[in-house]
Design a protein around this nucleic acid. Structure first.
Lengths: 312, 312
DNA sequence: GATTGCATTTTGGACGACAAAAATGCAATA
DNA sequence: TATTGCATTTTTGTCGTCCAAAATGCAATC
C-alpha cells in the first residue's frame, strides 16, 4: 500500500524518525501536535498527516482524542523501512538525468526548453523550474531570443582548476574571519564521522556518500566563519562539483589521507591557532586539486557514461 | 503613439542607438538585416522590429525592398528621446518597488506570495518570477509550508561588514590568479571614466550612476582574473549592494579619492607588480568599508524612505 | 484548560488554452 | 545573387481553472 504523503509531512516524519534513532524519543513519549507545530514552524495540518503516516507504519500509536505516542520496542529494521518510504527524492530525478546526459555528451550544446520538455516527458512548469535551477548553478545560459546553451561544467581541466583556486581564496580566509566561532556539536559530529572513515568504514561507503561527507565538512567550516557570504559561495560551488567530481574519486588511500587532514584541521582550530589552520587548509586544498586534476586529465577514473547514470 | 516593441527588439534598437552616439554609425550607412541578425545571434524577426521602431523614431529611413539606412543629421536630443523610449525597465520595476518598500520597512517581514500579488497588482507568474529572483539574491527565504520571510539585507552593520570582508578575501586574490590578463580596451574605458570623475564630472552624476561605475570597475577586474567563479561571486554580492549602498553615498570628496585609487590600481597592474596591486586593492576595500560603515551607523546619509523611492 | 477532531478558508502548484515573440522558409525584388 | 518582404511554424510568456496542501477557527473531549 502506497501512502500518499505530502512533502512537508514527509520531512516532519523523517525528523521524528531521526529523533527516535538518535535516542531522543523513547517508547511511550507523547507527540503533541501543538508543540511539534511550534518547533517546525508550521500549522498542525502537516503534523497530523505525518503522525497518521507514522502510526500506519507502526512507529507510533494513536488513541482517539488522546493523541499519539511513540510505540514500544521499535525494531531497527522498521525504522529503516519507514525512512526509505518517506524519502522521496523523485523531485529532482529529471534534473539528475539531464545532468548525466549533459556530462555524457548526449545532449546538444544548444537546445530549446520545448525540446527538453519533450525529451524528458516533463510538464512545462517542471521544465521551467529545472532550467531555472540549472541556470542558477551556472552550467546553462539563456541565448538571446530562444533557447539555452549548455556551458562546459567542470569537465575541462581549466574550469576544474578555477574552482579550486576559488576555494583556495575563500576557505582559508573564512577561518580567519573575526566572527569565526566553533560549532561544538558540529565539530563532534564530523570528528566522529572522519574518524570512522580512517578506521575503515570507508570501504562500506559509496563514492557519492564520500563526496557528500567531504563537502559537508568544508561547508561546516564555512558556516563557522559567521559570514554568510562565505558559506553561500562555497555551497554554490559545491553544487557544481557534486555533478562531476566523484569521477575523480578512485583512490581510497587518498580518501583516508583526506579524512586525516580534516581531523588535523579541526585540531588546529580547537587549539586556537587559526593562522596555522588556514595555512594547513590551503595546503589541503592545493594537494586535492593536484591529485584530482591528474586523475581527470589522465583519463582514469569513472568516466564511462554508464557509471554516470548509475551514480546519479 | 505608444510603440509596442518586444524586449529583444528594444535591446537591439538601444544597441544601434549606442553605435550612432559612439560615432560608429553615420548618416547613410546601411543596416543590413542579415548582418545584424548574425552579430546579435538572433533571427531577423526582432531585427526587423527594431528597425521599424527606429524608423518610426526618425533615426533611420526605410525604402521598400532596399533596406534601412541611418538618417542624416540626427539631433542629439532625438537620440536621447529615442533611448528613453526604448528603455523599458518595466520588467523589474515591480522588483524595485518591493525592494524599496522592504528597505523602508513598510512590508511585513513575513508574507505570502498571494499578498505580494495583490499588493503590487501582479499576475501570479510574474510574482513567482520576482520572488525567485529575490530568493536567489538572498534577501528572502521560503518558510516551511506557506509564505516567505524577508531577511535583513545589508542594513545591519554586521551584515554590511560581512559583505566587505568577503570582497576583501575575494578581490585581491583575483588579481593574483595565474590566469589574470589585462583587458586593454576595458582598462582604457575605465581609465577615461575615472579620470573624468576626478576632473569634476562627478558633480553631474547621480548617486546611482556613481555606484554603477564603481561596482563595474571592480567587476571588470574580477573578469580579468580569468576565473569565472571570482566574477560570478562578485556580481552576486554587487546585486545586493546595489539595493542599499547608495544610502551611504554622501561625500563627493570620498568619491574623487576612490576614483584616484581606482586609477592607481590600474597603474600598478599595468606595471606588472600584482602583489602591490593586490595589497593596494585590499587597503582600498578596507577603507571603503570603514567610511561607509561609519556613515550607515551614524544615521547620516539618505535613509528617509522618500529618497529610497526616488532613487530606485 | 489544554489538546485533539474536524470543517472551512487560503495558498500555491499543475495543467491547458491562448497570445506574443522569435525562428524559419520561400517568394519577390533590387 | 544578395537582400528584403511575408507567410508559416515553433517557442515561450501569461492567464485562468482546478486541486492538493497548508493554515485557520471552532467544537468536542479528556
Amino acid at each position: 500500500m502506497r501512502h500518499d504523503i505530502s512533502p512537508l509531512a514527509a520531512r516532519i516524519a523523517l525528523d521524528i524518525i531521526g529523533r527516535i534513532e538518535g535516542g531522543r524519543l523513547h517508547g511511550g513519549d507523547a507527540l503533541r501536535e501543538t508543540a511539534l507545530a511550534e518547533t517546525h514552524q508550521v500549522s498542525r495540518s502537516p503534523i497530523r498527516e505525518a503522525l497518521r503516516a507514522l502510526t500506519a507504519a507502526k512507529l507510533t500509536r494513536h488513541h482517539a482524542n488522546r493523541g499519539t505516542v511513540i510505540a514500544d520496542s521499535i525494531k531497527p529494521e522498521a525504522l529503516k523501512r519507514a525512512r526509505q518510504r518517506f524519502m522521496r527524492s523523485d523531485d529532482d530525478e529529471p534534473y539528475r538525468r539531464i545532468a548525466a546526459d549533459h556530462l555524457a555528451g548526449t545532449l546538444p550544446t544548444e537546445c530549446t526548453e520545448a525540446e527538453i520538455s519533450r525529451r524528458y516527458k516533463l510538464g512545462r512548469a517542471k521544465t521551467r523550474h529545472i532550467m531555472a535551477r540549472i541556470a542558477q548553478e551556472g552550467w546553462i545560459e539563456r541565448r538571446p531570443g530562444y533557447g539555452w546553451a549548455f556551458q562546459p561544467v567542470l569537465t575541462t581541466p581549466q574550469a576544474f582548476s578555477s574552482s579550486y583556486r576559488f576555494r583556495l581564496a575563500l576557505e582559508p580566509a573564512g577561518l580567519l574571519q573575526p566572527t569565526f566561532k566553533i560549532d561544538e556539536q558540529a565539530f563532534a559530529r564530523f570528528r566522529a564521522a572522519q574518524q570512522a572513515l580512517v578506521d575503515g568504514r570507508i570501504y562500506t561507503m559509496s563514492s557519492v556518500e564520500l563526496f557528500r561527507l567531504g563537502s559537508a565538512f568544508h561547508e561546516m567550516l564555512a558556516k563557522c566563519s559567521g559570514n554568510p557570504f562565505f558559506f553561500d559561495a562555497l555551497q554554490r560551488i559545491n553544487r557544481l562539483r557534486r555533478l562531476i567530481e566523484y569521477r575523480a574519486m578512485v583512490d581510497t588511500a587518498h580518501f583516508i589521507e583526506q579524512a586525516r587532514e580534516h581531523l588535523k584541521i579541526m585540531d588546529l582550530i580547537e587549539s586556537g591557532d587559526m593562522d596555522a589552520a588556514a595555512a594547513f587548509l590551503a595546503r589541503h586544498l592545493e594537494t586535492a586539486r593536484g591529485v584530482k586534476l591528474e586523475v581527470l586529465t589522465s583519463g582514469k577514473g569513472r568516466t564511462d557514461s554508464a557509471t554516470v547514470h548509475v551514480h546519479f
